[in-house]
Simulated assay, not measured.
Amino acid sequence: MGKEMVVYVLSDSIGETGEQVARAAVSQFNSGKYNIKRFPYITEEEQIIEIFNEARNENCIIIFTIVIEKLRNFILENAKKYNIQAIDLMTPVIDAVKNVVGHEPKREPGLIRKLDEKYFRKVEAIEFAVKYDDGKDTRGIKLADIVLIGISRTSKTPLSMYLAHKNIKVANIPLVPEVSPPKELFEIAPKKIIGLTANPIKLNEIRKERLKALGLSNTASYASMDRILKELEYSEKIMKKLGCVVIDVSNKAVEESANIIMEIIKENNLLKV
């Protein structure tokens, strides 16, 4: 039996891709033992020199996923110097993509990890918006990046979901005259609360359409002007008491209202990430 083969995996990120490729390749052979040594976050030539000082005495190959050109060339130079096979996994693929898209790559390490993290933050924010929608669980008030409050049909849920797709955790709370607002609203910073209001005539139209969609009579008190005015008066009183920003969503698309909210978030530095 020959000397154990060592596969050195070098990466300017975590090195997971290189290791998976190495294991997939080695699995095609039944002869002898092998050992995989992963070296993540390679950013300096000194690190590469240390690895080659060890590798030159081993029965080995080097697999690397390095996008920084200077380091890639340094690895290839040392591989030639010590007569070690070095496989560059990234360059052939990057060159092929470059030929198709017609512009140069960023050559920035760890981009795929950053994209994955962004995706999972978005999923988490969407799940949060669903869980803490319409005051279902008031514990979300203290966990949220922002809290939307307003009477029925002021776009609380659509705004929550739109903002969730921007990685913002949103809880929304309906304001109803017969129900006291949750105490948690008064225990967070007013800058985290956004009040939503709308023109009563517009609300009257929206609520009538809502009742029609549900197969109910549009004469129900929910859509009556008296009821809407009572709710708006109540919500205005609560918003003043809280001292929060108020946005009139009457003639605004969800995207427009969301952009205003995102500016408020940015100005007040409300995001935790």
Rank of each mutant, 00 (worst) to 15 (best):
residue 136 K to C: 12
residue 147 V to H: 06
residue 142 K to L: 09
residue 140 G to E: 08
residue 139 R to C: 10
residue 153 R to C: 02
residue 143 L to A: 10
residue 124 E to S: 13
residue 148 L to P: 04
residue 120 F to P: 00
residue 144 A to V: 13
residue 145 D to R: 04
residue 139 R to H: 11
residue 139 R to G: 14
residue 130 V to E: 10
residue 129 A to D: 02
residue 152 S to F: 08
residue 127 E to W: 06
residue 127 E to G: 12
residue 135 G to D: 02
residue 120 F to D: 12
residue 135 G to Q: 01
residue 135 G to Y: 00
residue 133 D to L: 04
residue 142 K to E: 15
residue 146 I to H: 00
residue 135 G to F: 02
residue 139 R to S: 14
residue 121 R to E: 15
residue 139 R to E: 14
residue 128 F to Y: 08
residue 119 Y to I: 15
residue 120 F to I: 07
residue 142 K to H: 14
residue 145 D to Q: 08
residue 122 K to V: 12
residue 142 K to F: 06
residue 150 G to F: 04
residue 131 K to E: 12
residue 119 Y to W: 15
residue 119 Y to H: 15
residue 125 A to M: 00
residue 127 E to N: 12
residue 131 K to N: 10
residue 149 I to R: 03
residue 133 D to R: 08
residue 127 E to R: 13
residue 145 D to L: 03
residue 125 A to H: 02
residue 151 I to P: 00
residue 153 R to G: 00
residue 155 S to V: 05
residue 121 R to I: 10
residue 144 A to M: 07
residue 149 I to E: 02
residue 149 I to T: 07
residue 148 L to S: 08
residue 154 T to I: 04
residue 143 L to H: 10
residue 136 K to I: 13
residue 138 T to Q: 12
residue 126 I to A: 03
residue 144 A to P: 09
residue 126 I to Q: 03
residue 121 R to W: 09
residue 136 K to M: 11
residue 123 V to F: 03
residue 127 E to F: 04
residue 121 R to F: 08
residue 156 K to A: 09
residue 123 V to Y: 04
residue 120 F to G: 06
residue 125 A to Y: 05
residue 133 D to A: 10
residue 155 S to R: 03
residue 119 Y to R: 14
residue 131 K to G: 04
residue 147 V to D: 03
residue 157 T to C: 09
residue 144 A to L: 06
residue 136 K to N: 10
residue 146 I to V: 13
residue 136 K to H: 04
residue 143 L to G: 07
residue 141 I to K: 09
residue 135 G to V: 05
residue 151 I to E: 01
residue 123 V to D: 01
residue 146 I to A: 02
residue 157 T to I: 05
residue 151 I to D: 00
residue 141 I to V: 12
residue 121 R to S: 13
residue 156 K to Y: 05
residue 141 I to Q: 09
residue 132 Y to N: 05
residue 145 D to V: 01
residue 137 D to V: 09
residue 132 Y to W: 04
residue 148 L to D: 05
residue 135 G to H: 00
residue 132 Y to H: 06
residue 148 L to G: 03
